[in-house]
Design a protein around this nucleic acid. Structure first.
Length: 351
DNA sequence: CAATCGTGGCT
DNA sequence: TAGCCAAGATT
């Protein structure tokens, strides 16, 4: 690839970033660990959402060591509400590996840092360029959008193989004096100027070198095909209280959706199936009385599926063995357990 | 490679 | 309202 405005583009971008960059918590440190944490939290997550989580997380876990050996329940509680919970587990595993195998020094090369759990091509490049000033690419959605417009690249950014094209482009363009500012400049430009819809081209520091701007093509780029359809799943949720006014809760499996998060017992509603029987069999608890059959009904939309929840408040008594991943907990104990947003909605209606 | 994995804001 | 989208990684 030969882009004749390479020098100007690079300089204008970096100068714009240094002048206009947002004052964000992770931009006030050069600690590779803290930058790593920020990059993981920012995966598929908005800046405004991350800020309070980032501050609380680093107050609790200011060092690699403090995170490496934190109890998983406590860690997930810190991550509660952020989503993509495997990020927290992978981050801790990666941090632990750095402590034990790299003498608490985050690797400064792509080969080693990429082996750490949860560190993919983007995060590796981000940490290396920002914390270690290495000229490494860090291609995210912003970067692909910005560069698809500047260079008028019409490849489908929904396809995995397309990312390689942009990584090569960044390798060609990146500023070796200020690699971190260059990468963050592309991302900030994508976030503030070169937005998905109605980009603010009149404010863009590199519009003179942008092919899409010259062609008036901005709204057609980037090209992105894939669209996912979400399936619906209906659940009957039993908010079950025993004679001590403790609530029955269970911990989800350690793999898959909402891994290791706690929830109220729920039974998938299928045709010709008695949910109440299922509940009794599975949780070894008999429903003595239905206190409120319409405690709460709501819909929760995940990225690839939708839960339709119908919650009942019931009084139960134990009649046989309870599953090993379940137990009865007081309201105060519930508050310490990590729970997903839909489950918190249920907790919030309990008085 | 395509599907999976959360949540909240925006259009 | 319903879909789209955001500083991706894993399987």
């Amino acid at each position: 690839m030969n882009y004749k405005y390479k020098e100007q583009f690079r300089q204008n971008l970096v100068e714009w970033f240094q002048r206009e960059k947002r004052d964000l918590p992770w931009r006030r440190t050069s600690d590779p660990y803290k930058i790593w944490v920020s990059e993981v939290m920012l995966q598929q997550t908005r800046v405004d959402t991350v800020i309070p989580y980032y501050n609380r997380f680093l107050e609790k876990y200011p060092t690699l060591e403090s995170l490496a050996y934190a109890p998983q329940e406590e860690l997930l509680k810190m991550w509660e509400g952020l989503g993509y919970y495997s990020r927290a587990r992978n981050l801790q595993a990666g941090v632990k590996e750095v402590v034990e195998k790299y003498n608490s020094v985050v690797p400064d090369n792509r080969h080693d840092i990429s082996k750490l759990k949860g560190v993919g091509p983007y995060t590796a490049g981000a940490v290396l360029s920002i914390a270690y000033k290495k000229p490494e690419h860090a291609v995210d959605g912003n970067v692909m959008r910005v560069l698809s417009r500047v260079l008028h690249i019409e490849e489908d950014i929904a396809l995995p193989k397309t990312k390689k094209v942009f990584e090569e482009v960044v390798e060609m363009l990146i500023d070796h004096e200020h690699p971190g500012d260059f990468n963050q400049g592309l991302m900030d430009l994508g976030a503030m100027i070169c937005t998905p819809t109605s980009p603010k081209c009149l404010l863009c520091p590199v519009r003179d070198y942008c092919i899409a701007f010259h062609e008036g093509d901005m709204d057609k780029l980037p090209i992105k095909t894939k669209k996912t359809k979400t399936k619906k799943v209906q659940y009957k949720v039993y908010v079950a209280i025993n004679s001590d006014d403790h609530y029955l809760l269970e911990k989800r499996p350690s793999e898959g959706l909402l891994a290791d998060m706690w929830q109220f017992p729920m039974i998938e509603i299928k045709d010709d199936m008695n949910s109440e029987e299922q509940f009794t069999t599975h949780y070894g608890s008999r429903i003595k009385k239905v206190l409120n059959n319409t405690l709460l009904s709501f819909k929760h939309i995940f990225s690839h599926l939708t839960w339709e929840m119908e919650c009942s408040l019931v009084k139960v008594e134990l009649i046989s063995e309870i599953p090993s991943n379940a137990g009865f907990y007081s309201k105060d104990e519930i508050k310490k357990l990590p729970m997903s947003v839909p489950m918190q909605k249920i907790v919030n209606v309990l008085n």
